[in-house]
C-alpha cells in the first residue's frame, strides 16, 4: 500500500469506528470509572440537587455495608442463587444437549426450538406467569405434585422455598441457551475418539466419562463462567415475584442496589454494592479459570 492510500484508509477507519467507540467510551467506560469513584462518596438525595453536597469518604461505604445485615443477607442470597442455581442450570443444559444430540433422535429441530423458546421470552412476563403457577392453592405446580402425593408448598410465601422457586424458574428460562452451546461442543468432539474407545471395549458410560466429558471441558469453562456472571445479576425475578421477600430471603445484590440507588437515592452506597458485585464476579471468574483450566488442557 502506498503511504497516501494508507493514510486514506486510516482516516476512513476512524470514521467507521469513531461513532461506536465514542458511544462506548461515553456510555460505558466513563460511567464505570465514575461508578468506582461514586462508591467512595456519600452521594445521596441532596447531592442529586447539587453535586457539591457529595463528599469523598474513602472506604467508609464499604465498612458500613459490611456491617449492614441487609447487605450480608443479599450477598448470601446471591451466592446461594449462583452456587446452587448456576450448576443446576448448567447440568440441565448438558442433559438436554445429550438427549438432543443422541444419534437416533427424530424431529431434532422441533425439540431444539421448543427447548430454546423460554430463552427468548420476556423475563417480566414469564415471572408473572410463574407467580401464578406457584400459587399455593390454585397453582399448577402444587396440583401436579399432589398427583404423586406431595403436600402443597407455599413456594413464594415461605422463606425456605422462595429462592428454590426462583432457581427453578431460572433453569426453565435459561437452560436452552447453554444447551445449544453444549450441542456445538458435542459435535466438535472427534468421532475417532469414540471409535478408538469402542475398539478398546469401552461401554456407553465409560465413553461418556473418558471421551465426552474431557472433550467438553473448554465448553464447560465457557458456559460456567458466562452463566455465573449472568446469575450474579439476579434482579427481575425477585422484583416481580417476591419484592425480595419473604423475610428478605430473595433480596439480591442488584435488587438492593436498585432500592438503595433509585428508591432512596443513596447513590454512594448503591455504587458500593455495584463494586461488590464487580469484585464477586471477578473473584468467581478467576476461581473458575483456576479450577477448570487444569481439566480443560
Amino acid at each position: 500500500m502506498t503511504p497516501a492510500a494508507s493514510r486514506q484508509q486510516s482516516r476512513a477507519a476512524w470514521v467507521f469506528v469513531g461513532p461506536a467507540l465514542a458511544l462506548i467510551a461515553i456510555l460505558f467506560f466513563l460511567p464505570v470509572l465514575a461508578g468506582l469513584l461514586l462508591a467512595l462518596t456519600d452521594f445521596d438525595i441532596y447531592a442529586i440537587g447539587s453535586t457539591s453536597n457529595a463528599r469523598f469518604v474513602g472506604l467508609r461505604n464499604f465498612q458500613q455495608v459490611l456491617h449492614d445485615p441487609d447487605f450480608l443477607t443479599a450477598l448470601r442470597n446471591t451466592l446461594y442463587y449462583v452456587i446452587v442455581g448456576g450448576p443446576l442450570s448448567v447440568l440441565t443444559s448438558l442433559g438436554a444437549a445429550l438427549l438432543l444430540n443422541a444419534r437416533m433422535v427424530r424431529l431434532r429441530g422441533l425439540f431444539r426450538t421448543i427447548y430454546f423458546a423460554p430463552v427468548v421470552t420476556t423475563l417480566v412476563a414469564v415471572a408473572i406467569v410463574w407467580r401464578y403457577l406457584y400459587h399455593p392453592k390454585y397453582g399448577l405446580l402444587n396440583y401436579v405434585m399432589g398427583w404423586i402425593g406431595i403436600a402443597p408448598i407455599d413456594w413464594l410465601g415461605n422463606p425456605h422455598w422462595a429462592m428454590p422457586a426462583i432457581i427453578l424458574l431460572s433453569i426453565w428460562k435459561n437452560f436452552g441457551y447453554n444447551m445449544l452451546i453444549f450441542v456445538a461442543g458435542l459435535q466438535a468432539i472427534s468421532q475417532d475418539l469414540y471409535e478408538a474407545a469402542g475398539i478398546d471395549g469401552a461401554g456407553a458410560w465409560k465413553r461418556f466419562v473418558h471421551v465426552t466429558l474431557p472433550g467438553l471441558a473448554p465448553t464447560f469453562l465457557f458456559v460456567s463462567v458466562t452463566t455465573m456472571i449472568g446469575f450474579f445479576q439476579l434482579f427481575a425475578e425477585p422484583y416481580i415475584m417476591t419484592q425480595g421477600g419473604p423475610l428478605k430471603s430473595t433480596t439480591t445484590l442488584v435488587l438492593l442496589m436498585y432500592q438503595e440507588g433509585f428508591r432512596w437515592w443513596r447513590m454512594g452506597i448503591a455504587s458500593t454494592l455495584a463494586v461488590v458485585l464487580l469484585l464477586a464476579t471477578l473473584v468467581g471468574t478467576l476461581l473458575q479459570l483456576r479450577l477448570q483450566r487444569g481439566r480443560a488442557q
Binding site: I24, L27, F28, F29, L30, P31, V32, A34, G35, L36, L38, I48, I229, F232, Q233, V254, M257, G261, F262, M267, A270, S271, A274, V275, L277, L278, T281, L282, T285
Partner: peptide, 19 residues
Amino acid sequence: LTLALVVPGQVGMLPLFLL
C-alpha cells in the same frame, strides 16, 4: 474493549443515570 466483557453493566448504571 475486551475488558468491558467482564464488567457487569450495573457498575456504570448509576453514573450513567446521573449523566
